[in-house]
Design a protein around this nucleic acid. Structure first.
Ligand SMILES: [Zn+2]
Ligand SMILES: [Zn+2]
Ligand SMILES: [Zn+2]
Ligand SMILES: [Zn+2]
Lengths: 139, 139
DNA sequence: TTGGAAATGATAATCATTTCCATTTTTGTG
DNA sequence: CACAAAAATGGAAATGATTATCATTTCCAA
């Protein structure tokens, strides 16, 4: 666990002071699995690995990690929340609908588009979402 | 009801042959309210207006309208599905987080961006989502 | 050591959405 | 019109994710 802390610190400059054991467990499992996974799936994975962590705690940890911008939250087509460890800079995703593989991509064009549109229609405090999904070359 | 059919026909070129009473009711209420609304909200509105339509039927009608590309489906932050009557061409939305007002906008830059990114990473059959949200000038 | 704060997890509650199924309405045909 | 088959409808129950409660456990600083 201490090693993980150090890795995380080095890799992401995250202050682990505010992180509890569960947060770190979730980061670890997200790191191991890669791609997006739902809270339920992450819980099952941890359980299968012998960790007795409770579902409630999984939800709590994920929520806290999302608040801290350490994981991305987006939604499956049916609305279920899925989570993914992500870089700390703003970015978007290219997701394979078949295998779930995900690429983080730059959204330069999007940023400009969002800003332009917001200005044109007099919106302020604007944010945006943009995701691309398709079938990857392996599938 | 027949008048509505004709209006819809003229306005959208939709084949009403495949549309039943419930579909038309939902179109009408969506037209009246404008903006996005959830299935539950639409059901309540109809009920309040004296229509005894069942929740099941509301869900069914919305599903069918989404399939026919007559309404847009997107998601609130909590994952709840919200629906909106929309033009038949591909477009995106600029939504006010405060009052819910929505503007349909062109996504030329997005379309290009999505295509470019998909090509770069070898994805095929790609689709995309892109929404902008902020506070409108009135709010 | 110890008292309070934070974390945990089982259980129950919530709430949107789906499934089931019996009943009603519509439609086509003679 | 009468009547049977097909489609539509809606109430109730089931499902499934997420959240709220709350008693218990773990941490930690004084
Ligand atoms: Zn794939
Ligand atoms: Zn962006
Ligand atoms: Zn507004
Ligand atoms: Zn587009």
């Amino acid at each position: 666990m201490i090693m993980l802390k150090k890795i995380m610190l080095k890799k992401r400059g995250i202050c682990t002071k505010t992180m509890n054991k569960s947060d770190l467990k979730l980061i670890a499992v997200l790191e191991r699995t890669g791609g997006f996974a739902s809270a339920q799936e992450l819980h099952q994975i941890l359980r299968r690995e012998g960790d007795g962590i409770g579902l409630t705690t999984v939800y709590r940890a994920l929520q806290s990690l999302v608040d801290d911008k350490i994981v991305d939250l987006l939604r499956r087509e049916d609305g279920e929340a899925i989570y993914r460890l992500c870089g700390d800079t703003h970015h978007h995703h290219l997701v394979c609908k078949s295998c779930g593989d995900t690429v983080e991509i730059e959204g330069g064009a999007i940023e400009k588009w969002a800003k332009t549109m917001a200005e044109e229609f007099g919106f302020r405090d604007v944010g945006h979402t943009a995701e691309i999904f398709g079938i990857c070359s392996k599938c």
